[in-house]
């Protein structure tokens, strides 16, 4: 199925969860924040939060800034 991840169209397996997506991206969950369709997904909910066709997902982290 297709989702939009950080503005890019990507193909992920049916039944993927937020936790699965982060694992696939090799991103440690303690260092990121995830938004699905503009709602923040709490870290504790990553395992249970399934993704659906057309979801708009944002994964952010801290970068250098002033």
């Amino acid at each position: 199925m297709h989702i939009t991840l950080n503005g890019e169209a990507v193909d992920i397996a049916e039944g993927s969860t937020v936790a699965g997506l982060l694992e696939h991206l090799q991103l440690p969950r303690e260092r990121v924040a995830v938004e699905v369709n503009l709602d923040i997904v709490p870290k504790a909910a990553y395992d249970g939060h399934g993704l659906s066709e057309g979801d708009r997902v944002e994964v952010v982290h801290f970068v250098g800034g002033g």
Partner: peptide
């Protein structure tokens, strides 16, 4: 120390600040 919040780079070959 201040940091900015930005989209992760989907290409994980790059290192990150932390």
């Amino acid at each position: 120390i201040t940091v900015a919040v930005r989209r992760v780079n989907l290409d994980r070959s790059k290192e990150s600040l932390l």
